[in-house]
Each structure stands twice: as C-alpha cells, then as structure tokens.
Design a protein around this nucleic acid. Structure first.
Length: 254
DNA sequence: CACCAGGTCTCTC
DNA sequence: GAGAGACATGGT
C-alpha cells in the first residue's frame, strides 16, 4: 500500500520481499512479477467486484464514489508489514509514511539485489531505538520496537482464528494501535470485511452524509457505519475514502 | 512561524 | 468513559 513507485508506463510495487511491475496498455494492465500467484492474491484478482458494487449501489450516498473508484480493490497485504505500516501512518501524512517505510526497508530489509525487502519482525526487534529514530519514525519508534518483539514471539499467530472483535482488541493491546489502525490491519492484512476504518476523512464523510448523533467519536462512527454496511463495510469505506481523498484538497501528494 | 498529517497515549475529572 | 494536550517529523 505504501510501497509503490510510478514509472513511465505504470507502477512498481513491493510487498514483503517480493516485487511486481504493472504496465498500463490501453484498456488492460500487464503484470510481471517474480511471484505472480502471490500478487494475484495481493491485488485480490479472484474476487468479483462487480457484484460488490451492485450490492453497494443500494446504499445511500455511494453512487458517485462507486463510479469514481471503479478500479478499487482491497489489497491482501502481509499481516506483519501491515501492522508496522499502519503504526507509522498514525498522525502522519502519506508522503512521510512512504518515506519512513522506505528508510526502514533500506536500513533493515533483506537485500534482494535490485531492491530491499520489507524488514522482518525479528530483524526490527533487534534494531535500536536510535536506529529507528534515524529512519524518521519519531515517537513511534518504541511502538515499532514493541510490536516487532511481540510479532517475533507469535503475537499474530492465532489472529486469523479469532472473530473480528476479539482480533481487534488483541491488536489494540499493542501500544500505537488504536481502533482505526487496528481496523486497517484487519481490513488490509486479514481481509476482514466487517470493519470500517474511521480516520479524519471518513469522519468528514460521516458528518456530511450519515450523521445520526450530533457529536460522536470516531469509535461511535465506526460502529454505526459497520452496523449500516455489515459485511460490505470494508468495501464501502474504501470507495468513500478514495473519493473524498482524491476530490478534496491535498491530492497533490498522489 | 504556526498549523497540519489515513491517531494514539496519558493524564485528569 | 469522556475531554484536553502532548507527541517526532517534515511540508506548506
């Protein structure tokens, strides 16, 4: 999600220790990878998004977002990479998130020849606080270190067996992981569809289109939106997020 | 030089 | 449990 580079004709994308190139050619995309099966799953290519969009079209205030984000797919990312990435994302902007993650790869990732892998949890667990500060993580350095140790010791081992709410609480027991980050990890790392990551942008959407209570917290918004969208929550969130994020200012970053 | 960024933590009451 | 402030860092 945060490890991609635009090229003349497409994108270079990195996940874990793997690489994938995308070339846009008229109406189709050519994928080349050292691990095509992995990236078919990564891009969620086997899923029928047409029926998801059809189901979502019955909901209020989504028509425009569905059209705007017609090519959206929910990525299946590596769970550990997702944990570290979204710890970094908190109270941060996208260019800097990408920069920090790049530096973490440069400093701690395995050398794959043409690029560096995302660092493993056990490698990050052996990093020093000052090394993590050097990567620009700031006050999140200790969160990363703690999460790295926990994951190395099996923290994520049983997560896929837990129901969503149990898994969410489990993730939130780590410092640096609150409700929003936990929901992102569940959505992008475990493809849990019954979460609604609620950040500043979704909060704005909520207040504009879906507000039921006058003054409610992000947690309450997420709960209400989940109740409304059920197992389509994760998808609805992505369409709404992408739409507002691209059409409201700050789109200079992309 | 303030203010902000895909929030969370830590204190209070 | 709800409500303020702090929080590294880099960009505007």
């Amino acid at each position: 999600m945060f490890r991609y580079h635009k090229t003349e004709s497409g994108y270079k994308i990195f996940s874990k220790n793997l690489f994938c190139g995308l070339i846009y050619d008229n109406d189709h995309v050519i994928m080349s990878s050292n691990q095509p099966d992995y990236f078919c799953h990564y891009f969620d290519l086997r899923r029928d998004y047409g029926s998801i969009k059809q189901a979502l079209s019955g909901y209020p205030n989504l028509t425009q977002a569905l059209e705007f984000g017609k090519g959206i797919r929910i990525l299946n990312q590596d769970p550990a990479e997702t944990v570290f990435s979204f710890i970094v994302s908190a109270n941060n902007n996208i260019p800097r998130i990408r920069q920090i993650i790049q530096k973490l790869c440069d400093k701690f990732g395995e050398d794959m020849g043409a690029y560096r892998a995302f660092p493993t949890a056990s490698r990050l667990a052996r990093a020093s606080l000052s090394q993590l500060y050097e990567a620009g993580t700031g006050y999140r350095a200790e969160y990363i270190l703690q999460a790295a140790g926990a994951i190395r010791d099996g923290f994520l081992q049983d997560l896929s067996k837990m129901d969503t709410q149990t898994a969410r609480k489990h993730l939130m027991s780590l410092k640096g992981i609150g409700g929003k980050v936990a929901d992102c990890i569940l959505l992008f790392g475990y493809h849990r569809e019954d979460v609604f990551p609620t950040d500043v942008w979704i909060a704005r959407v909520y207040e504009k289109y879906y507000a039921h209570c006058g003054q409610c917290t992000r947690e309450q918004m997420a709960l209400e939106l989940c109740k409304l969208f059920g197992n389509l929550s994760g998808y609805a969130q992505q369409y709404l997020f992408y739409h507002i994020r691209q059409t409201q200012k700050y789109n200079k970053y992309i």
